[in-house]
Write a protein that binds this DNA or RNA. Structure first.
Lengths: 335, 335
DNA sequence: CGGTCGACTGGAAACGCTTACATTCGGCTG
DNA sequence: CAGCCGAATGTAAGCGTTTCCAGTCGACCG
């Protein structure tokens, strides 16, 4: 473990003070070109790297952006991560990852907030459902925050029109003549993300607009996983099965298709299926689904955080990005 | 932004020195039970949180584990992340995420290594293909490192038998009577991860063992994405199409199935498809594939890093975890 | 009962940087 | 040419911990 060069070493070697080195290396004014060039050269020679902890302690900023989300092993959050990563690393910031997957973790997260706020300059939060007083706690720190998925008035947020998108999807089914349309959504448990609820609202609205009665038996939790979707569909198939299913995620839709196949039903002849997200696998499967540009959505949020970290002081912004229904082979006119 | 309490505040209020507070709060010896209890109470009252940068600067450790991987938006890496996260957060460490997705990023990564080594106590590296001198650079820092996917002798590594697994998969196809078996693998470009190569080796071995001639025209790059797999398959279907395809990932297999369907071929009647990974979607699709326990694999690696961070000094360990072929509906006897 | 030993505790020096403030110095103004 | 100004540079005070070292003090040994 070779002892690494400190700013002092560079200063000595360059025959200047540490203050000058600091200014020279960070591109601050009040350094003559000649000095700056010399300091830079020597820093390179010595392979000097500023100690990040020392900088952060002294300067009070961390140069890192935090990202908090419920899970990592899903297509959606993977893409969120990718989107955030792209802009954050572009801006030469580091990423601090924290997952908040259950109520315990959530409590810890909120409890650790004061500590977190020292470690990151800004935070992007994805789909984290919190109680109001938790949001108060978040706001209190004064740290730049952007939310994606959830719309929290006092923070920057980038969202999609979940209600509208779901409405569109279900209306598509209704227009194909379907009257018995099921909904596979969130829950049970902590996985009951808010997004499932708003999508369900869109589903309800669409049913109402189409003059279809909302049958509570056709609402089934799917936990946003393939397996959950499969279970949900199996459950739906126990009784008189629906002619169409709207799922709050592609994963669940895939599970539903799986269950249908197992039950000897073919898609879309016997049952139409609609998903949500439009991950690449959906295209491969021919799944009709709501397309949302996940990565760019997350990237927007990250950009907003960085913007504020950079000093911008605008009032909270709300960005809504467009979605559209991608119609494929999994939906067809009912017979 | 309310000024937060420092260790000094706690010390003053408790009528002891900062040294004692530090010892008391961290559970070190040489603090009387009474004092410790009082300090803890006061710290809680003041909602005191140690400034992480100050601790790290003074103590020289960071309490965070780094994870470096090529991408974020794939099932595989998402699950790697989840696996690492689970054990890292269990051990109350933070996570520092860095993605190294192309040659530029790789160069920067290696260049920033000295800096990184101050920010993390240990590192888990996934599938990062590096030149030898880069590995030398990594080793030089003396930081605990575990690799997953790649086997680097001087580091802890957790791997699967890629060659064997691929052999098994292709042998399965051969046993079903297939003679014209294609391979969809990595590349072109940086996505040519090492894992594609070793799997190709297993493919070659299996062909040889089955007495099948290896036809270079049947090797096609698929870039480890659904779209890439689709392109690859479309390419394969241009000529006399193969009766079976072995893909180095499930994503590519899904792309291949998609292309087959588009071309009016049915799976497995006209063409058998085998994937690699066994993500949930594979089960939904009935895709025959090599199962590997991704999360636990990654978790093992993280545990090894933490082990070393904790002071363990064993020689480099190598863990090989089992895989198996999950036979489903996408493969059938050739006609 | 003097001395020794250990458990507690405090003092203060790092840790490596940023930055407010002071200083120097050459060139300009009047 | 005295005086002033601003650019370049240096000085040093933090930033909030950890940790080495040295005291203090009561208990216990011989």
């Amino acid at each position: 473990m070779p002892d690494v060069a400190t700013i002092e070493d560079v200063a000595t070697r360059a025959g200047v003070s540490v203050a000058t080195v600091s200014r020279a290396l960070r591109g601050l004014p009040h350094v003559s070109p000649a000095t700056r060039e010399r300091v830079q050269r020597i820093a390179t020679e010595l392979d000097y790297r500023p100690n990040p902890h020392a900088s952060r302690l002294a300067a009070g900023r961390s140069g890192t952006i935090g990202i908090a989300l419920p899970l990592l092993n899903s297509w959606f959050y993977g893409n969120v991560l990718a989107g955030v990563e792209a802009v954050v690393s572009e801006d030469r910031h580091d990423m601090h990852l924290v997952t908040v997957g259950n109520a315990d973790a959530m409590a810890r997260f909120v409890g650790d907030l004061p500590s977190l706020s020292k470690q990151v300059d800004g935070l992007v939060m994805v789909d984290l459902f919190m109680l109001d007083d938790m949001w108060d706690a978040m706001a209190e720190g004064g740290m730049p925050i952007a939310t994606v998925g959830l719309e929290i008035g006092r923070f920057d947020s980038v969202v999609i029109d979940n209600v509208g998108a779901a409405h569109r999807a279900v209306t598509h089914l209704a227009e194909l003549g379907h009257r018995r349309i099921a909904f596979i959504g969130g829950g049970p448990g902590y996985s009951e993300f808010e997004s499932a609820e708003v999508r369900r609202q869109g589903y309800r609205n669409a049913l109402a607009d189409a003059g279809i009665e909302d049958d509570p038996d056709l609402h089934v939790p799917g936990g946003f996983t393939v397996d959950g979707g499969r279970e949900a569909m199996l459950h739906l198939l126990e009784g008189e099965h629906p002619s169409a299913v709207f799922c709050a995620s592609d994963e669940m839709a895939m599970g539903a298709m799986w269950a249908a196949a197992d039950a000897g039903l073919s898609v879309p002849e016997d049952v139409s299926v609609v998903g949500f997200d439009d991950q690449p696998a959906a295209a491969a499967l021919g799944l009709t689904t709501v397309h949302q540009p996940v990565s760019s959505l997350a990237a927007r949020a990250a950009a907003m955080v960085l913007d504020r970290v950079g000093g911008s002081e605008t009032p909270p912004r709300r960005v809504e990005v467009e979605t559209h229904l991608e119609v494929r082979r999994s939906t067809a006119r009912t017979i």
